[in-house]
Amino acid sequence: MKLSLMAAKSKQGIIGNGPDIPWRAKGEQLLFKAMTYNQWLLVGRKTFESMGALPNRQYAVVTRSDFTSTDENVFVFSSIEDALAQLDTMTNHVIVADGGELYASLITQVDTLHISIMDIEPDGDIFFPMIPDTFTLVFEQGFESNINYTYQIWQKSQ
């Protein structure tokens, strides 16, 4: 199973302030929606509760709480390992789509990173991990918006 990771971070690496994303950049969320359409998303419970279930996606939610869902497109797991083992039998591609702990736990296991770097320095308390040396930047494009941002694709070196 191929693992990708998709994140938006500030210049200093902030990805969140509590349960909130500390910016709204026009166009960047459209990129997320387009890239994740008809895909499996692996997210933490707090992220899932703050964003909700987007249509035409399937979710693997990792939580240590007693969270449950009646949505047929939402599967709940008690650990990252359980989620990955089950997903490996259900799909050939998963996008790790948010959660500081998930990013830190899985960044060395993913094949591709899709990173938007926001040209902003907000306050926040959740940070994106350092990109390991095993990744190479293969694509970069800047976008002008109400908050300018740069979209990057990183591939794990073989």
Rank of each mutant, 00 (worst) to 15 (best):
D98G: 15
D88N: 14
E49Y: 03
A83R: 00
A60I: 01
I147S: 01
N56T: 03
N17C: 12
K156P: 09
Y149K: 00
H93E: 12
Q86K: 15
T112W: 06
S4W: 11
M130S: 15
S4L: 08
S10L: 04
T47L: 04
S4G: 13
G18I: 06
D123K: 12
Y59D: 11
Y59M: 11
K26M: 06
L41K: 00
T68D: 04
D20S: 05
D123A: 10
G100K: 09
D119Y: 09
E140K: 14
G16C: 02
V138P: 08
T70V: 11
L113Y: 00
S78L: 00
R57E: 06
Y151E: 02
D20A: 06
D66H: 07
R45H: 08
D111H: 10
I117A: 01
V76P: 07
A83I: 09
I95L: 13
R64Q: 13
G99H: 03
R24P: 05
K33E: 14
S79K: 05
V138Y: 08
T108A: 13
D98V: 05
L42I: 02
K156F: 12
Y151R: 01
S79F: 02
T134N: 13
A60E: 01
G52T: 00
Q39K: 14
A25M: 08
Q58A: 10
L41M: 12
I80M: 07
R24Q: 15
K9E: 12
M6T: 05
Q58L: 12
S157K: 15
K2G: 08
L5M: 10
S4I: 06
E81V: 03
V74Y: 09
S145R: 05
E144K: 14
W40N: 01
